[in-house]
Simulated assay, not measured.
Amino acid sequence: MGTPLGDFVRAKRDSIQPQSLGLPDHGRRRSPGLRRLDLAARAGISVEYLTRIEQGRDRRPSVAVIHALADALSLDPTERDHLRYLAKITGGECSAHPQPAPPRRQVRPSVRETLRLLEPGIAMVTNRLGDVLAHTGAFASVTGAAGLLDGDAPNLTRYVFTDTRARTFFADWDDIADEQAFDLWLAPSAENSAWLTAQLAALAGPDFTRRRNRHVVPRRGILRLDHPSAGALRLRRETLELSADAQQLIVFLPADDKTAQAVEQLRERPHGRLRAIS
Results as ranks from 00 to 15, higher is better:
45 I>L: 15
45 I>G: 00
47 V>L: 05
47 V>E: 15
47 V>N: 13
47 V>R: 08
48 E>T: 14
48 E>P: 07
48 E>Y: 00
49 Y>V: 08
49 Y>E: 05
49 Y>D: 07
50 L>N: 10
51 T>L: 11
51 T>S: 14
51 T>K: 02
53 I>H: 07
53 I>W: 02
53 I>E: 06
53 I>M: 06
53 I>G: 00
54 E>K: 07
54 E>A: 04
54 E>N: 10
56 G>L: 07
57 R>N: 12
58 D>F: 02
60 R>M: 06
60 R>W: 02
61 P>G: 07
62 S>R: 03
63 V>H: 12
63 V>Y: 04
64 A>M: 01
64 A>Q: 13
65 V>Y: 04
66 I>H: 09
66 I>M: 15
67 H>K: 11
67 H>E: 15
67 H>Y: 01
67 H>D: 15
67 H>I: 03
68 A>I: 06
68 A>F: 06
69 L>Y: 12
69 L>W: 06
69 L>E: 10
70 A>I: 15
70 A>L: 15
71 D>R: 15
71 D>Y: 00
71 D>N: 13
71 D>P: 00
72 A>F: 05
72 A>C: 04
73 L>S: 05
73 L>A: 04
73 L>K: 05
73 L>F: 04
74 S>I: 05
75 L>V: 10
75 L>C: 07
75 L>K: 06
76 D>S: 03
77 P>M: 09
77 P>L: 12
77 P>T: 14
77 P>Q: 04
78 T>F: 03
78 T>Q: 13
79 E>R: 08
79 E>Y: 11
79 E>D: 11
79 E>S: 14
80 R>M: 08
81 D>P: 00
82 H>G: 10
83 L>S: 01
83 L>K: 01
83 L>M: 09
84 R>A: 11
84 R>N: 12
85 Y>M: 14
85 Y>Q: 10
85 Y>K: 14
86 L>M: 10
86 L>K: 03
88 K>V: 11
88 K>L: 11
89 I>R: 15
89 I>N: 00
89 I>W: 01
91 G>S: 14
91 G>Y: 03
91 G>I: 03
91 G>V: 01
92 G>E: 09
93 E>Y: 13
93 E>D: 12
93 E>T: 12
93 E>H: 11
94 C>F: 14
96 A>N: 03
97 H>Q: 14
97 H>C: 03
98 P>C: 02
99 Q>G: 05
99 Q>Y: 14
100 P>R: 03
101 A>G: 01
102 P>T: 04
102 P>N: 07
102 P>I: 07
102 P>M: 08
103 P>L: 09
103 P>D: 09
103 P>I: 11
103 P>M: 04
104 R>A: 12
105 R>V: 09
105 R>Q: 11
105 R>L: 12
